[in-house]
Write a protein that binds this DNA or RNA. Sequence first.
DNA 1: ATGCATTTGTCCGTATGTATA
DNA 2: GTATACATACGGACAAATGCA
Lengths: 137, 137
Amino acid sequence: MTIDPYSHTPVYVQLADLIRERIESGDLAAGAPVGTELQLSQEHGIGRDAVRMAISLLRSEGLVTTTRPMGTRVREVPQRRQVELRPGATVVARMPSGKERRTMQLDEGVPILEVRNPGGEVEVLPGDEVELTRPER
Amino acid sequence: MTIDPYSHTPVYVQLADLIRERIESGDLAAGAPVGTELQLSQEHGIGRDAVRMAISLLRSEGLVTTTRPMGTRVREVPQRRQVELRPGATVVARMPSGKERRTMQLDEGVPILEVRNPGGEVEVLPGDEVELTRPER
DNA sequence: ATGCATTTGTCCGTATGTATA
DNA sequence: GTATACATACGGACAAATGCA
């Protein structure tokens, strides 16, 4: 698979698709480096901006994290703990605001679960750490 | 409020914060343009890179959408419909893959709710359109 | 139906700062 | 301490997509 600069899909989306596929297929395991910006730029014959936007997109999907100076690696997804949904509760999923992300120390690309319990109490849960359950009975 | 290039918080984060506040306060209503890259660049005396990064950040939070050549507008959030969680079901929230996002026609920054019903059937729901409920009884 | 104007997409160059192996 | 690699930020240039006259 190679990147087609003449395609109607943006180059950075194509690169993100390539890397995402390698991650989801297991070719790139958790913790594995996806390559430096320079490497990716040269390997695929595309510009710096495109590489950075591709990486940024994957970060926003929660697939990779970038640290200095180790570069970008496949993100290790934490174990999910089970959270039981109480009767009468409602849940919405959304992305955190910038402030929320910083105060909750969430990686980019991690959604939030907002659980509204009867009585009005609201729980805000990191979406990558929990699995909601409605028990059998 | 104005942008301080000497602050320790990056210029693009400051701009994103400014725009986010205008959206959340209702100053910028759904569908309203947030301004072109050039406008924002000139108004705040910052580079186009910083503007693009700010917009990109807001996109990843699901607050705005960008199309060419209409620019970036405040995203219209759909009405949420209620979805009842069946007994024995479990739910996880995650970001969609690029392919999922495109086939489900989701905007950037919209999480997915993956409902696993007893029996193994899996439902994939757009996170901005549903509110999960566990009924009182 | 053709073309123009607008706006983002993409490329490139440069520079400084910062975290960490 | 040094080298590495990204983060931030500025600048310029051309390409491509789309709404509209």
